[in-house]
Design a protein around this nucleic acid. Structure first.
Ligand SMILES: [Mn+2]
Ligand SMILES: [Mn+2]
Ligand SMILES: [Zn+2]
Ligand SMILES: [Zn+2]
Lengths: 147, 147
DNA sequence: AATTTTTTGCAAATCACTTGCATTTTCGAT
DNA sequence: ATCGAAAATGCAAGTGATTTGCAAAAAATT
């Protein structure tokens, strides 16, 4: 296993939230070229060690986010996430809860589902209490906690 | 209402599947510049007339897809879609069925959910029967039906 | 119709991500 | 430990979707 891959695995394993390639790139600080991050992430996803989804957020644009998958974890045993559109943090929604819904769709429609993407967006508790429901003003204060 | 916006509305209203900006661009054939399509789609989404999601498909890359929203339609009253990774067609999953799940998350976590993205991917019935479960070979034949 | 406001087209810029290719690293076999 | 094949990396350049600046054209107001 190469240095770059160890570093990315380490960073992904430590993070408790999905990370984008650029976040990973800065977290492994100069360990390797960004292009290697991309290649490493492909590698990990191919190997079934990582999971990813593409999230679009008005402020941050469209980016792919990655999480580590426990080895041998079944396809439904991944997590889904909530993304706060104010502070741009993720909140873990825990293990996937739409397995039965997916099964229902498969039976109803005769489709074979091999993957799905689900994420929620809105305002996190912290932003709600600070920013009076995150709708009216722009209260800075706890924003950009992790960027 | 301008010519370009009428054209895009018409195309989106006729289509029975989500359309990408580039698909829309060719469907309105030379009516306007692609950049106007993008601006029009932003406009429609702002007005609440259109809904969109970003889908990543290995073969087609990452693109944003748009559907028309019945005017006055509540936020949960949208559809979700299945995307066949063989023929790249969408299958309508009907009205959103995760309203209660989303509510559960809101209560459990104290988050305020204002939007969500859900789509399924896999192999459609047509591709399954033709291509022997869409896993082994590459049977061409009914692919590229709508592109 | 004249004026103001919005929308459009074209060209150029972004941005995330990919690819080509020559140069290392890694790794299995000696 | 050493050698050579195979895989991984860096750098530069290329993609493809989407955005932005700005002046011209179209639509809404008056
Ligand atoms: Mn964000
Ligand atoms: Mn596709
Ligand atoms: Zn927040
Ligand atoms: Zn299909």
């Amino acid at each position: 296993m190469t240095k770059a891959r160890k570093a990315v695995l380490e960073v992904l394993g430590t993070a408790e939230r999905p990370l984008s390639a650029s976040e990973i790139s800065s977290l492994v600080s100069h360990c390797c070229d960004p292009v290697t991050i991309y290649r490493t992430l492909h590698y990990l996803e191919d190997k079934g060690l990582a999971d990813s989804f593409v999230l679009h957020c008005t402020e941050h644009g469209t980016e792919r986010y990655f999480t580590l998958l426990a080895p041998g974890e079944a396809s439904y045993a991944h997590h889904h996430w909530f993304h706060c559109e104010h502070c741009h943090q993720f909140i873990d929604l825990g293990d996937c809860r739409i397995g039965t819904l997916v099964d229902a769709y498969q039976e109803e429609l005769g489709i074979r589902v091999t993957g799905h993407t689900l994420y929620l967006t809105g305002v996190c508790p912290a932003c709600s209490s600070l920013g009076r429901n995150g709708q009216e003003h722009d209260h800075r204060g706890h924003e950009s906690q992790s960027e």
